[in-house]
Design a protein around this nucleic acid. Structure first.
Lengths: 211, 211
DNA sequence: TCTAAAATACCTGAAAACAGGGAGATGTAA
DNA sequence: TTACATCTCCCTGTTTTCAGGTATTTTAGA
């Protein structure tokens, strides 16, 4: 083992950002930048052959969605810490990235000191966020929270069963009710969510964490 | 204005925890514990009459689900910082709480210093996690990540339209394709996700962030 | 260039969902 | 006790989905 330096890769479609980050991290001797890529697929090929401890990943890429790329990377190499490095300042985007396996989320206005500190934290096995990201996460918008209609106990129960793929007759049997009753509940659910059909109903309910 | 002390409330169904937290925070002069509750509904009544800066919230409660309570609190009083204080050490639980508006997530093995530091961070408008929680968040399980089948471009497109409540004829018209083609794609989607019908398909796809 | 995957299109019949109503029973909180 | 919400059940007819195939034409990769 010649070196224990941390291997770091960067994926960003803006060459300027790549340059800037390289400069920023050049004088951090613990970190070795082993690859810079402007497309997701190029990085995936690289990852097949090389170990990468930390990946700085931009979310908007020409070929693939950064969220899915993150997931793909974590599946291929769970030990790689993916730090999203993005301009997207929406709360939902941050949460999505974390949900898909990112170890952290940094906004691009980050300072070099903060960047290095975040990389260090990630290497220590801790999720990490830039300060700006933490501020955003602490401010949920009202629209994110409300919008969930008030459901009765029965409706919640039936909603779950529908989401599990149960049909009206299935549910009727399971709950010892008339299929017509289930139909009524189903109609009420669709109406309460202002959905067009079960598909959009389940989408909304799932997004609101009711399933 | 007589005092600028931070008002803090606690909701936990274990009286011991309430006692313990009160003792812990008693000698922090910036913080005033204005209420301790063992049920969600009791706290909601309290919140209607009183300002609460920070809420320490246990997730498992006798009457209501802590996740939904959190959302309710944030809708009623967006300025209240909800810190989940729980034994649940599942990544998904942490993310769900944040998604529903929590300002932070603390595991119950937290030290008093860390607790106070986290409360302070929350008051400064930053999300905050106990160290243990950050470790959990940094370790996504493989099962959380995989399970999303590989979809083609067309399939993703149609999946979105289905999730938006569009029917097969709708989609066919919009994409200038035969309804039979859409049916085929729909069948393939259901098969790829191992779903029973669109309802479960949309649930899975939404949970995996594909919608 | 050859080949595999993707996208397109078709068929039939059964099952389920949807629209748009009405209506009685039960509980519950003011 | 009187509303009000909830839960239950029913009707008719139409539309959509689903399961089970088969099959041709485009991409796109090796």
């Amino acid at each position: 083992m010649l070196t224990k330096r941390t291997t770091l890769a960067i994926v960003d479609d803006h060459p300027i950002v790549l340059e800037g980050l390289q400069k920023l991290l050049a004088n951090v001797k613990e970190i070795e930048i082993t690859g810079c890529f402007t497309t997701g697929s190029a990085f995936i090929s690289f990852l097949k052959e090389n170990k990468v401890d930390v990946l700085l990943l931009d979310i908007t890429l020409p070929d693939v969605n950064g969220i899915e790329l993150c997931k793909e990377v974590k599946e291929m190499s769970p030990a790689t810490h993916v730090l999203a490095l993005s301009n997207h300042s929406e709360r939902s985007m941050i949460l999505q990235m974390i949900q898909h396996g990112a170890t952290g989320y940094l906004l691009k206005n980050i300072s070099s000191e903060e960047l290095i500190a975040c990389i260090q934290e990630a290497l220590n096995g801790l999720v990490t966020f830039s300060k700006a990201a933490r501020e955003i996460m602490a401010r949920p918008s009202v629209s994110e929270l409300k919008g969930a209609p008030q459901l009765t106990k029965r409706e919640k129960e039936i909603l779950h069963l529908i989401a599990d793929g149960k049909t009206t007759p299935d549910i009727a049997q399971q709950l010892n009710l008339s299929p017509l009753t289930i139909e009524t509940h189903r109609k009420n659910l669709i109406q309460k969510f202002q959905a067009k059909n079960v598909a959009s109903l389940i989408k909304l309910a799932t997004q609101q964490g009711l399933v």
